[in-house]
Write a protein that binds this DNA or RNA. Structure first.
Lengths: 229, 229
DNA sequence: AACATCAAAAATGCATGCACTTTTTTGCTT
DNA sequence: AAGCAAAAAAGTGCATGCATTTTTGATGTT
């Protein structure tokens, strides 16, 4: 229906995304949501059939995910989801905390009122989810806030690195709030974070973010890293 | 040419690395060293012939490098080396500086005498290269020192992320010392860094590393990001 | 029954081929 | 000659096929 040769519309229609790129997204989701468990083997054939594609783009996607660190490649023996040890999570959280602290400092220097309002709005949504004990919705709002702060830093590379690392431990971060007491605590910390952000107090915000993440780390240290859906 | 059929040697020879992995290495080198210029297109066919491989593993390698951020994929239009804008470099240096600061703090808590000696040795080699004005050798020793500090943090994820980011801006970091005055300054900064490390003064080391990297950033801000070999 | 050995089956790694898209060239019009 | 359209060439994207490696399972030995 849209095959009017060259004459009709010059508008370069939004080139459909390549199959391998779609597969990267799909597989990343499956891994992050735990649909494929950590450490599990990834059978090429089965997934090819499931997605209705050939092995070539699937394998390309696996190489990309391996470069991201979500997947491990075993030469001649296939691929498997990178298993997250507790240590991996703790190490990553230390880095993520540091990056958020940096982002917070930068954000304070350039945060617009609109951005602040957006974050404030997310914060209130998050509070509502907390009151309702809707863990998944809370988690999403929470992530959105952290992401928004990082975005507000104005450092695009930082945003990219943050997103990548963050994705790698997403499951574990979710698990970190399974403990009700820790959950309430985290909400309190977020109040302080919002206040520092509103006051554009960079150093204070940095310190808060760093300890917020460090606390997640403590919350996890006791529990198995995979105690998740 | 090396096709000895199945009978020959049972010894499970140290599984040769897959072609796609070798290509990742080779291409990364070509990009980092500038053999393929920033922004340049990457012609699949030509590289396949050059390496004597088919397009499949080459394309897999490109997907991996794209996930690393070294390469940009243009749907239906091939791949090209990600062009480093001055802004990219500055943004990345901010992150790298922060990561090194974190690494420094962690390293101070667990640095062994042997590790310190190793770094001290690298430091003196670096001084020698500086005295001789051997820029390349200096650069290598310098990188080795930073790498060693990051390794000494004991955080493997940090080391990996650091290496990846560092690689992305390797060319630019090299260029940052083209200015003789800045070069001398950098050497002085390294003296202070070594002192803080020897004293296991984490906060001080963190501050020094952060400003050391920030200074590189200033040094670059004025010059074109590609003013390199 | 436990173990080793070897053959069959399955899975991986890479090469090749075909369809489709983009780019370049050619030929025509103004 | 400049500009434009159609055709040709080149290049990319994915599917398929074959060789090799790994895994599984069967067979025979101790």
């Amino acid at each position: 229906m849209d095959i009017l040769p060259h004459t009709a519309n010059d508008v370069r229609r939004p080139r459909r995304t390549p199959v391998h790129a779609k597969l990267v997204e799909a597989l990343r989701d499956m891994i992050v949501t735990g649909e494929i468990a950590g450490g599990a083997k990834i059978p090429e054939r089965a997934l090819c059939e499931r997605f209705g594609v050939s092995r070539t783009p699937l394998r390309e996607a696996l190489k990309a995910l391996a470069a991201e660190g979500l997947v491990e490649l075993l030469p001649n023996r296939g691929a498997r989801v990178a298993a997250l040890t507790a240590r991996d999570v703790i190490e990553t959280l230390a880095i993520v905390g540091n990056l958020e602290a940096l982002a917070g400092e930068l954000a304070c220097k350039r945060l617009s009122e609109a951005e602040l309002q957006e974050i404030r709005s997310l914060h209130h949504q998050m509070l509502a989810h907390h009151a309702r004990r809707d863990r998944l919705a809370y988690f999403r709002a929470n992530q959105a806030i952290h992401q928004a702060i990082v975005q507000a830093s104005g450092n695009a590379v930082l945003a990219q690195v943050y997103a990548a690392l963050s994705g790698r431990i997403r499951r574990a971060r979710y698990a970190a709030n399974l403990n009700a007491a820790r959950w309430d605590e985290a909400v309190d910390e977020h109040e302080a974070i919002l206040a520092a952000l509103a006051a554009r107090d960079g150093p204070r915000l940095a310190a808060l973010l760093r300890s917020h993440l460090a606390n997640k780390s403590y919350a996890l240290a006791g529990e198995p890293a995979h105690a998740n859906d």
